[in-house]
Amino acid sequence: MKRPAATTLGALLMGSRVLAGLGTILVALLNWTAFSDALVIETPGGRTPDAGLVLGILLGLYGVVLLLGAGLAVFVFLGRNWARITAMTVSTFSIVTGFIDYAFNGAAITFRTSLFSLTLDILILLALSSTAARHFARRRKSAG
């Protein structure tokens, strides 16, 4: 069975989310001082840890998450059903979190805030939950 456009599109959107994240890391690396100075760290002990170290750890963790996302996109592209379900679950969590923030905390969702990433999540979910993408992932699964 040929890979349907919905699967390709879903994987591409996941990839573009990873690229956007890498862009954020790059911006942080290029403006290291400004970013670490802006970091407000509150610790109960009163000791002030090195802001640069904290920023490094945060960016490192974010990088690992992005790497996992890129791997997941590849497996979605290859038509693995577990990857498709995982990606849809992640998007669903992200959408539900955004909705709770919007409906109960009155968060404004605009292009300046999270509308772009929310749009990506919803497009990924629409693409991967489509009938064509489902048949493709399930066909591959039963074929081994």
Binding site: I95, F99, T119, D121, L125, L126, S129
Partner: peptide, 13 residues
Amino acid sequence: FFFVFAGAAAVWL
């Protein structure tokens, strides 16, 4: 579930 949820999310979008 994902099929229907995605539909609802698209309406919200």
